[in-house]
Design a protein around this nucleic acid. Structure first.
Length: 787
RNA sequence: GGGCGAUUGGCUCAGUUGGUUAGAGCAUCUCGUUUACACCGAGAGGGUCGUAGGUUCGAAUCCUACAUCGCCCACCA
């Protein structure tokens, strides 16, 4: 197959994409006995078309390593997943179809819309990933809402229940009043808001004196259940064991002491409600305080809110402050800026209500989970601290039930009479309890669980969901644990933590051995790329302009875990590299016509051995670097070899030999051809993980004699000790290269064209390079060297 | 407040265990129509490696403090 005369990037990349697909170049081979390398590919959210260069960066970086492993002889299992489950999808559909009230649409209609939107998202990703040349095995694809994934997520629930890691408890839980669903610790986000610290008068029931408390949430006064002060606070000793009367609601609450109260804050008196924050819950639990819930799951105020009943909690603060003012009970308002926790998805400040929810008991296993995390091979190492910080700071068990429409149903029924919890058999999965009756029961005896599972409940099973795409159970078993988990650092505390947790609880193992954590994509000014700011060029546009190889080249531009700025110059450099490779390919093709690799190596000249020894060194560096996930280092070394050693020197120095038609020059010419042949093949292979398109083009054009043999299934280059230079040869080469440089400088400074022959050149050298004078005079067009 | 990361020529970034004149690309300047390539080639200029101390024969690299920027966590009701 010949190399085309011109490299039309878009057209040729499309050609090779099609070629790879047709020949199943990236398919996992179930019949192979090669060692397996399995990847736990991140399943991206498909709920919105928000793909930007940051995604390109992180997927490419992982893919460099995957391609390297494939060429190293691994049977690569590289599936693709799509996370189309859960709240983000619901929200996207609500927004897009302007669904304000879910009562206006049936559950099944709504789910149908979700699935439709999901499908569109999958197409967007799939198109871009193919465009980029991501070498996933598209025959191994899952979506997190499909039956395969649902089955595994539900199995997980059942297995955890049977093993005692699950519990159903009624307790205060973080709640999103706008979505009306429970939230897990990780669904929260900080939001800085301007507010007031209000000094408000309570009355002592016993002495009728004024008790001043400071609060940012005066609306919770009707929910107040106690006042606290520090046990050693001299100002309030006489109040121990007495009671206070709240303003507005006028109910009586105990006054207690606790060491966690800060004497310096406000007046040193603290109001505890049910519940304003986790501190409230802690004290409520510790002192077994009363429970006063003033609003329901929609945020509507109830009886305990007295006159305010029927209105919404969000309106209560102003009403209460006005009423306090009217009664002269509000003494002071201090403006403050503080950080409150809001629901990540809705932006609504979280509230606490008490409901029955399912939990995975993670808090009591903190130590073990920390230990599991420690056993992972983290790349880069420092990313482990994000994991350990998170695990150490866990305060709540993982709440896995969600009061939502679109998700994997919790596979549970409750017996109408006894309340007994009924689980389906494994072979019945997946089930929707609201539409299915488990074997051995009658529908009328059962109450179906309405809630669905947290979306992380499914994605935390991704290594197994992926592995089980292979039907043969023996082979599937070999795919778990995965070899590699690539992901972004933002989801260490969610996806990574939950996956580690699941593998530990289910199998007492790690879900994967190696972790590769990528950084953020930033815009040209160093700001985080986001859909909201719109500060990015769509990757499709960039690829159309410069090609996928060039875009991938940009992604090598930073070390793993570091953020990378979008930099069009780097992409241009990628394109230049592609162009240069192409031209070298054309040149080689021209000079390798009718050349076949001889059985025995040709008699190499010093310069030939030199470039091959440079190749040796680069192979070593690149191999080691890719193994350490240091694709950047690999690329730099390969670039050096290609640009600075090969095109700058070697190629120019052997041209005269390649063009030599004389009979006495044929041995030398063959040696140069031989070197060219060997060198370029290895060079292409070295670049192949980073630049899959152009390397395939040239490999097919120069080397492949079969229709289906791809460079990406070829073997990774090996070093050859025959190419090692002796110390003497090495010194000689150093001098020869110095002479080359000197001649070039001389010509450049004297405005002489490099191609023009000069009569003589003065040089000094530490080695005796006289045997190479003929070579130098020919290669450099110098009549005579004068020492 | 605690933790992590960053700070290197105009710009974007490398510098693995401390070791000869600190590297690359882009940009700048000079030169060159050379038979793979002008998406090219050759040459040149440009950095007291954020600041201040310390360890060492020797520090961009190790230690301490500080400054600026970014991120994460905890946040006083």
């Amino acid at each position: 197959m010949a190399i085309p005369s011109k490299y039309e990037i878009t057209e040729r990349e499309a050609y090779w994409r099609e070629f790879w697909a047709q020949h199943n170049i990236y398919a996992f081979d179930e019949n192979s006995d090669k060692p397996i390398f399995s990847v736990d590919t991140p399943p991206p959210y498909v709920s919105a078309d928000h793909l930007h260069p940051g995604h390109i960066m992180s997927y490419s970086q992982a893919e460099f390593v995957v391609r390297f492993k494939r060429m190293q002889g691994y049977n690569v299992f590289y599936p693709m997943g799509f996370d189309d489950n859960g709240l983000p999808t619901e929200r996207h559909v609500e927004k897009k179809y302007k669904i304000k009230n879910k009562d206006a649409i049936s559950r099944s209609e709504f789910v149908k819309l979700c699935l439709e939107e999901t499908q569109k998202g999958i197409e967007t990703y799939r198109n871009l990933w193919s465009l980029l040349g991501i070498s996933v095995d598209w025959s191994k694809t899952y979506s997190s809402i499909n039956p395969h994934s649902q089955k595994i997520a539900q199995w997980s629930f059942i297995d955890l229940y049977r093993k005692g890691f699950l519990s159903q408890r009624e307790e205060p839980i973080m709640w999103d009043i706008s979505f009306q669903s429970a939230l897990a610790q990780t669904d929260l986000e900080d939001s800085e808001q301007d507010s007031h610290l209000n000094d408000i008068i309570f009355k002592s029931e016993n002495t009728a004196e004024d008790l001043i408390i400071a609060t940012t949430r005066p609306e919770l006064i009707p929910a107040a259940v106690a006042l606290f002060f520090h046990p050693e606070d001299k100002r309030y000793q006489h109040l121990i064991e007495t009671k206070a009367i709240t303003p507005i609601s006028g109910h009586s609450i105990p006054i207690l002491t606790d060491e966690t109260v800060d004497r310096e804050f406000g007046t040193g008196l603290m109001m505890v409600c049910t519940w304003g924050d986790s501190e409230d819950i802690a004290k409520w639990k510790k002192y077994k305080l009363e429970t006063r819930l003033i609003f329901n799951e929609r945020g509507i105020l109830g009886e305990l809110a007295g006159a305010y009943a029927g209105t919404h909690i969000s309106k209560l603060r102003n009403s209460i402050l006005e009423d306090l003012k009217a009664q002269n009970l509000l003494i002071k308002q201090t403006p403050i800026t503080h950080t409150i926790q809001v629901s990540e998805r809705s932006g609504t400040p979280i509230e606490f209500i008490i409901t029955k929810q399912w939990f995975i008991n993670v808090v009591e296993h903190k130590e073990a989970l920390l230990e599991q995390g420690r056993k992972l091979n983290w790349n880069p190492k420092r990313m482990f601290s994000i994991y350990s910080d998170w695990v150490s700071s866990l305060k709540w068990d993982w709440c896995i039930s969600r009061q939502r429409y679109y998700g994997v149903p919790i596979p549970v029924w409750y017996h109408r009479e006894t309340g007994e919890i009924i689980l389906p058999q494994e072979d019945e999965l997946p089930v929707d309890p609201t539409e299915y009756t488990p074997r051995g029961y009658k529908a009328e005896d059962l109450i179906a669980e309405q809630d669905v599972l947290d979306t992380w409940m499914t994605s935390s099973m991704s290594p197994e969901i992926g592995a089980k795409l292979v039907e043969n159970p023996d082979i599937a078993a070999k795919l778990f644990p995965s070899s590699l988990r690539p992901q972004a650092f933002e989801i260490i505390r969610t996806w990574l933590f939950y996956t580690v947790t699941k593998a530990y609880f289910h199998h007492n193992t790690l879900p994967f051995t190696d972790v590769m954590i990528s950084g953020h994509g930033l815009d040209t000014q160093g700001r985080k790329i986001s859909k909201r700011l719109g500060n990015f060029t769509p990757p499709e546009t960039t690829i159309a302009t410069y090609g996928a190889d060039a875009m991938r080249y940009w992604a090598t531009g930073t070390t793993l875990g570091e953020n990378i700025r979008y930099n069009e110059e780097e992409i241009k450099k990628g394109k230049k590299t592609v162009n240069k490779l192409f031209n070298v390919g054309k040149f080689a093709e021209m000079h390798l016509v009718n050349f076949t690799l001889p059985d025995t190596a040709s008699e190499l000249e010093l310069i030939d051995k030199w470039i091959l020894s440079e190749l040796n060194q680069t192979i070593e560096i690149a191999t080691h670097s890719f193994e350490q996930y240091e694709y950047y280092k690999a690329r730099t070394a390969i670039d050096q070899l290609f640009w600075n050693k090969f095109t700058d020197y070697y190629l120019e120095l052997i041209k005269y030999r390649l063009y030599d038609e004389s009979p006495e020059g044929q041995n030398s010419r063959k040696a140069a051809q031989y070197t060219l042949y060997i060198y370029i093949e290895s060079l292409l292979k070295l670049y192949a993980p980073i630049l899959p398109f152009i390397t395939e083009e040239l490999y097919q054009g120069l080397y492949s004699d079969t229709e289906s043999k791809s460079i990406h299934n070829s073997t990774w280059p090996k070093t050859n000790t025959n190419w090692q230079l002796s110390e003497e040869e090495n010194n000689l080469m150093t001098d020869i290269l110095a002479v080359v440089e000197a001649v070039r400088a001389y010509k450049s400074q004297n405005s002489i064209s490099l191609g023009k022959e000069i009569e003589s050149f003065n040089y000094t050298s530490t080695q005796d390079i006289s045997p190479y004078e003929v070579f130098l005079t020919k290669a450099l067009r110098v009549g005579k060297f004068i020492k």
